[in-house]
Design a protein around this nucleic acid. Structure first.
Lengths: 197, 197, 197, 197
DNA sequence: AATGAATGAGGGTTCATTCAT
DNA sequence: CATGAATGAACCCTCATTCAT
């Protein structure tokens, strides 16, 4: 029950938690392994026992949190490419963001780093896959814009909005509100009169 | 006479150009002054003749490119807070992004850095100001979400979309499409029946 | 039962074998215990069960392989200091190198390390002892040079030559050739007319 | 006339001097840049102003000291492949070693390191070139052994001998003695009766 | 308007070694 | 007989910055 040495075996997990926390606060590049180690009250070398490199910590994070997104895409690909599927995709994406949003915010705020970090490639591919599922590649430009906009809305509604939106609604209220706006966008994209209005 | 030394006096400008280019490519933190200097074929020390610090280069960039945004906000504050004003704000914002989009992309992709860089504060404030002009602080949550979504749509439509949207429409076509979607969103937010649907 | 764990008790030997192999390939300093352990498919800590320190592995190697040299010197000291003894020393040394040459190559290629490694001292002493047995401390400079040269010839003929000598003679052919050259050198050193030429 | 800052512009040279000195004393791997810097009373970073990497220091050393050897080889290749040429090659090699011997000793005592250091390759090639010039690729094995032995004799006579040879002859006396022994070896290799004796 | 030389702080990484289990 | 987890010291290297010239 002491402060020291109390945990055991969960060090790997703790490293990832603290790392993500600091990466979000100060960015990947500016977060040094020294900082992570100090916050955990271990040595830098201890980190290297659990992760081969700094980049490896990020890879670990994405493996853990990125799975729901993979499943979502896999599911989407088994479904017919119609409005109902897309609405459901949005809903599930919104739900997934509830827990994974820290990682996604990290991904967004550290793009130049991820671009060079191998893992970044696969993350971008997943985003691309999602947009393809939600938009109709052959449809009119406006409709595709609506699809992407719906995605932006759910996506950024999950974290960017948290900082910029005033009022005292709960995070979950906000999330649902953005989800509804996104659904309207997608529905409009499928409405025959959408492009003409 | 000679390709070298041909320019004069515009070194400051050239530094900023190259810096922004590299910041976009590799991120602010990973771009070293050495790289910038080498690409310009001058010494690191030369950079210090023109800019007091690395951060100063960023400040210079924001002063140059950030002005249109300041003017936009200033204009918005003189106008009545109604739908027409907001639509016009969107249009002007979209237009401003046409030239300033590299800087905005830089701002977005280097948020953790900017957060600590003093200049970042003022940039965030400007974004906050914009959202306040475009949404009605006292209105229903869905409407505020629509306002923010409209802003996201114009904003990310300007660069994120460029990478993720397939098809061979021109960038300007895309921009206009996103603008139109954003206008629809704002209009819906002002429609009496919007919240009930 | 199974390929693993098949050996038992010979772990110490296997460590030494793999260590010498790696020391020869990459040098003592650049060979880490991690590498040795990985190649053996055990943990670093396991090495410490068999050897107290990294240096201890080297000591072990020299004890194993260095004995023939000790015996050679001991034998030499019991013999009269004449040409026949010296020729026989050369022959025995050449023979000893046949099996011990890896260790000798290691010793030669890692001299700065050995110099600081306690065991190195004793190795150098042995070489010095050999030269004293083969040369006549009070004789003319040229003769002493011939003695050392004979030693070089046998010594480096055993490994350096392997890499630099073209042709398809067997290693043993080469060894014998160098031995013969060395014998000529020693014999010349004992010839009355040697110094006068 | 102060102790500090007294020199200027010769820092690069001083780094190389001190580096070689330490490399000889403690070996390349065990010599840290910190040690070199401290001995020079500058910062580690200063070293990096003059040399891109630790390996670069070695490269610099070889470029400086390795040139005489290159010239020797180049000269040898313009000459007829007979005894006189070979004797002259030995003499010139022996002379070259007078000044370059520290570098050659370094090369010899740090072979595993050099093998991985790119520069090492070219050094080995030079040694190979020399042996080819001094021996007759098509001749009998014994004669080739005599050629290599002659080279060993001159080569190791230049530094290894210094440590192992007792007596109070000057280094130059020793060098000349070894040179003479080497000359005898080469001459014997060209004697018709050499192999039969 | 710019350079050459240097610095101090810190980066990520690797190493030999230890010890409770 | 061996492992898992960790440490402390050191490593090479890079960075933003300075300053005399």
């Amino acid at each position: 029950m002491g402060t020291h040495q109390a945990r055991r075996g969960d060090t790997r997990q703790r490293i990832q938690d603290v790392a993500l926390e600091l990466f979000l606060e100060r960015g990947y590049e500016k977060t040094s392994l020294r900082e992570i180690a100090e916050k955990l009250d271990v040595t830098k070398a201890a980190l290297y026992y659990h992760f081969k490199t700094k980049e490896d910590i990020v890879i670990g994070l994405f493996q853990e949190f990125g799975r729901p997104l993979d499943e979502l895409i896999a599911w989407g690909r088994t479904q017919p490419s119609d409005l109902d599927t897309r609405l459901e995709l949005l809903r599930r994406y919104s739900a997934a963001l509830q827990t994974a949003s820290p990682l996604f915010r990290f991904a967004h705020e550290n793009q130049p780093t991820l671009r060079e970090l191998s893992i970044g490639q696969s993350f971008r591919e997943r985003i691309t896959a999602l947009t393809e599922l939600v938009t109709d590649a052959g449809g009119p430009l406006e409709d595709r814009a609506r699809g992407m906009s719906a995605l932006f809305t759910v996506h950024f509604g999950a974290f960017a909005a948290m900082e910029w939106m005033t009022g005292d609604d709960t995070p979950d209220d906000k999330r649902r509100a953005f989800l509804q706006v996104a659904e309207e966008l997608l529905t409009a994209a499928h409405h025959p009169s959408a492009g003409t209005e």
